[in-house]
């Protein structure tokens, strides 16, 4: 197990190097606005541009820029400064992290509370009306793009622009410590919108798993023992059906912690996803680089945790 963990950590480091290098390459290879020109104001004169370019370090060759950037991260955990507002990127990311965490975990709770019961009922009452309705609804929820769903939700329910004024609209996010009530209120719509497709996906996944598991021999054994059906499903079948879902959940959380770009943008939530979006719009390489690296880090760490968790969930799995 120890050797396995060390090997995995080395892989994580290598992977992050590759991700950072690729981000650099993409930024310089694909056409984007010149960050220096963008910041030189209207009718810029070439000396000013050159000066800005020098200040931002953009006059150096790409590999030198990359070397400096990586040196900063490795030696000082320094992600450089935003081109846009000269703030340290590390600080920007950490200050935005609470909003993203709030959005992610709230949505996780919502989609589990909806997805799991729906999946169970659909599997047990297979081909019933309840099953058909929920699987049809799930298909819709999976198919609807999250930005569209977000806008529709705002037009219908937001207090400012909605047809029915129920929930706080876009741009109302307040920190949890600042005002718990407003924090909660401002996140209800984003949670529901972000959770919709996940809830649908989890319901379908659990339904399929559960139907599979119910055909297993050990379910017949559980019934042959005379266990109540509630226990046969709740313990024996769910134990097996939920295991793959735990692993998917780990990965989904990892991905969302890297920033739910669309949801955060639609609802104007100051999270990592919106930071990344702003970085892209402003050709702000250090911000893009920082958010991409953080996103990648969350995903590989989540992946790692999921693999370790699997060994605890399934006694047959052993790593060496």
């Amino acid at each position: 197990m120890g050797r396995y963990i060390i090997r995995r950590i080395l892989w994580v480091i290598l992977l992050l190097f590759v991700v950072s290098a690729v981000t650099f390459l993409i930024f310089y290879t694909l056409p984007s606005a010149d960050p220096a020109v963008l910041r030189a104001g209207k009718s810029p004169d070439p000396t000013l541009i050159a000066q800005i370019r020098h200040t931002l370090g953009l006059d150096k060759p790409v590999y030198v820029q990359y070397y400096r950037y990586m040196k900063g991260i490795i030696l000082h955990f320094d992600f450089g400064f935003s081109f846009q507002d000269s703030q340290p990127v590390r600080h920007e990311i950490f200050s935005r992290l609470p909003a993203t965490i709030s959005l992610t975990f709230g949505a996780v709770v919502v989609w589990l509370l909806i997805g799991l019961p729906v999946g169970i009922v659909s599997a047990i009452r297979r081909r019933s009306l309840a099953d058909r309705v929920s699987m049809g609804g799930a298909l819709l929820a999976i198919s609807a793009p999250v930005y569209w769903l977000g806008l529709v939700a705002l037009y219908l329910f937001a207090k400012d622009i909605g047809l029915i004024h129920i929930f706080d609209g876009a741009g109302t996010y307040t920190g949890l410590t600042a005002n718990p009530g407003r924090w909660f209120g401002s996140l209800i719509l984003p949670w529901l919108v972000l959770a919709a497709s996940f809830a649908a996906f989890y319901a379908r996944l659990l339904r399929a798993n559960l139907i599979d598991v119910m055909g297993e021999d050990y379910i017949r054994t559980a019934r042959a023992k005379g266990l109540p059906e509630r226990r046969v499903i709740g313990r024996h079948a769910m134990r097996s059906a939920i295991t793959p879902i735990v692993t998917v959940l780990g990965l989904d959380i990892g991905i969302l912690l890297g920033g739910a770009i669309l949801t955060e943008t639609v609802f104007n939530i100051p999270g990592i996803g919106r930071l990344a979006y702003e970085g892209i719009v402003n050709a702000d390489l250090p911000v893009i680089q920082g958010t991409v690296l953080f996103g990648a880090l969350f995903i590989v760490v989540a992946n790692f945790i999921v693999d370790i968790a699997y060994a605890f969930l399934d006694p047959r799995v052993r790593y060496s």
Binding site: E216, D217, Y218, R220, T221, A222, R223, A224, K225, G226, L227, P228, E229, H236, R239, S240, T243, L313, D314, P315, R316
Partner: peptide, 27 residues
């Protein structure tokens, strides 16, 4: 169903062909 559940495993018990798949792998 309730009466049958009390009989099953108590009055009438059953063993199956494949003991590996008939035991729950996680317990």
């Amino acid at each position: 169903d309730q009466e049958m559940r009390r009989i099953r495993g108590n009055e009438i018990a059953m063993i199956f062909q494949d003991p590996l798949s008939s035991l729950h792998p996680f317990y």
